[in-house]
Design a protein around this nucleic acid. Structure first.
Lengths: 233, 233
DNA sequence: TGTACATCAGTGAACGCGCGTTCACTGATGTAC
DNA sequence: TGTACATCAGTGAACGCGCGTTCACTGATGTAC
């Protein structure tokens, strides 16, 4: 086998190992609660603990990789969900996206906790997580943008933002949501927060002894929120 | 000193020790991130680690005590805030209560994370936490009840709940919010979720690089939510 | 009131675990000439 | 094509720490008669 191919074999094996380490780590997060142990990962991988350091410089590095993956996985799920309904079907897109978020969170609750739960003690998220974290909000931005463009999402006569808040939202708008008026953006953020608030309540146990059909409750709240935002069928 | 008094001294010292252990534990949660270590608490208390077992049967017992205290402390803050505005000033009460929640959470973020963050790995909350956890929602219930009684909170013509959800909420209503119609209750819950969703976003870092004046944003969202619920000045 | 006894707080040592990270090393695989 | 060398994955031992929990104990404080 020639040089290039030989090199790429080593690189491929390396990439596969890296993926396997992450996948074992994910499995352990799900099993042992929220603690991530390099030694336990090494044990599961059938390798001595120091071998992990060939692939990740430290425990925090592995944690960062898991967080980035989680954001990307959720972001992908959101993008996929948004692609199914017709572009003009704003309510359909909103419901598809929000249910995709809930479904994803229920399927991998520990990864959800990693990115939307309490911060891991002593861990400081580096800049690498910002991009992947934005994938989801970008889709929200698309829906708002399309709603504005279609004339469905409008500034309302009684929309009043305190000037300081209006200025803050104007900055945010300029960075990420250029065509969305500030009052609409504020409502969109409220909706976004409602999504994750409801999912977190469900996952973190606040609905225990309170609600049983949580999907139905979620669906209802998302529809109510849609009309609060102004997203209509 | 007579027998009764002598007994009560021992009991009082014991109660004081118990409080001091919890207070040191709280301080450590704030300092070391979210990990609670009996040995570290004992060290700070200037006592050998096994001595803690005179006061708490296990680490989980201490954790439970901290959680109960946190719910009670937050519950107290909510009740106090609700008592300030005039009873008829529903919007004032809603804003007082929601800001009290945010203020409390910002003042003791780790206690907030304990009760509204990701569950502690391997810890199962016992029944003792249910009562204290309800103090806050009871106040929400009071506001809804008074709003209904004043004729401000009403079922709207377009209020439509899926029958299964209506039945669930009817059960919940019967248990805790007797005079509040199901659709109003649903809106109240959305508001409640919005409060904690927004606070969690702020505390858990989702507003980093996004918003700076978070109090103002919160205040605006709480006002918007008030009108969504139907709570008006 | 005085004395014998019971209760209780706190000690100190130990058990049996866990962890992240470093370091010198072996041996296989890939590279350069 | 064949050989010398460099790269790299993984080893195994060690460092220096942490943890929750048990147990037999000492000595002080409270209780009963």
């Amino acid at each position: 086998m020639d040089r290039m191919k030989a090199t790429s074999i080593r690189a491929r094996v390396r990439a596969e190992m890296t993926e396997e380490i992450k996948s074992i780590a994910r499995r352990q997060l799900a099993a042992d609660g929220a603690n991530l142990s390099l030694r336990a990962v090494a044990r599961d991988l059938g390798v001595v603990s120091s071998a992990i350091y060939r692939y990740f410089a430290s425990r925090d590095d592995l944690l960062t990789a898991l967080i980035v993956d989680a954001y990307n996985s959720l972001g992908q799920a959101i993008e996929d969900a948004d692609a199914i309904p017709a572009k003009e079907d704003l309510l359909g897109r909103w419901l598809a996206v929000t249910h995709a978020i809930r479904d994803w969170a229920l399927a991998q609750p520990h990864e959800y906790a990693l990115i939307y739960g309490s911060p891991v003690p002593g861990y400081q998220a580096p800049q690498d997580t910002i991009g992947p974290a934005r994938r989801g909000t970008n889709v929200l931005g698309d829906i708002l943008r399309d709603g504005v463009q279609a004339g469905v999402l409008k500034v309302r006569p009684d929309d009043r933002l305190p000037p300081v808040l209006a200025a803050e939202l104007a900055t945010l708008r300029a960075e990420a949501f250029p065509t969305v008026p500030e009052p609409v953006l504020a409502r969109g953020m409220a909706g976004w927060i409602q999504v994750f608030g409801t999912v977190s309540f469900e996952l973190f146990g606040q609905f225990n002894n309170v609600l049983t059909d949580r999907r139905l409750f979620f669906d209802h709240q998302m529809r109510a929120m849609a009309s609060h935002i102004g997203v209509t069928a």
